[in-house]
């Protein structure tokens, strides 16, 4: 039996972190959440075990930019990366790289369904 999947939340806005946690709790699957509230912590975390199943990644973060974390995560993990950003221009640039790009503000219930789908895989 495998350990419960880890969802890594890299987001500097505490309210959004809380929103993600609530949405994940509503998904109805047993997951462990790891939260990094700045870029530096996020960068360190993606280079460490256990490998997250899913990474929710903000782009503009303190200390280290999300793009750098994205590259590190790509190099070190096989995690599904969902870029969630308020910067629509940066989001457009990420479209070709990231697995999924979601722009803020998003439809929370649709996002919940989307998370559920990703974790169900």
């Amino acid at each position: 039996m495998s350990a419960e999947p880890v969802v890594l939340i890299i987001e500097d806005d505490a309210d959004l972190v809380r929103l993600y946690e609530v949405l994940l709790s509503l998904v109805g699957k047993s997951v462990k959440t790891d939260v990094c509230m700045d870029g530096k912590a996020g960068l360190e975390r993606v280079q460490r075990e256990p490998e997250p199943r899913l990474i929710l990644l903000d782009l503009h973060l303190p200390h280290v930019e999300g793009k750098e974390i994205f590259q590190a995560a790509r190099a070190n993990t096989s995690s599904t990366i969902v870029v969630v950003t308020a910067d629509v221009l940066a989001a457009r640039d990420m479209l070709s790289n990231a697995d999924h790009v979601v722009t803020k503000p998003f439809d929370a219930l649709a996002f919940k369904d989307f998370l559920s789908e990703l974790l169900g895989k």
């Binding site: 439809d107 929370a108 996002f111």
Partner: peptide, 23 residues
């Protein structure tokens, strides 16, 4: 940039929590 970033993030939180409350 401010409009884009600083307005969108709280909007996501407000909208998200309101949806959850509604649900």
């Amino acid at each position: 940039g401010t409009v884009s970033h600083e307005l969108r993030t709280p909007l996501a939180a407000i909208g998200g929590f309101a949806e959850i409350i509604g649900l």
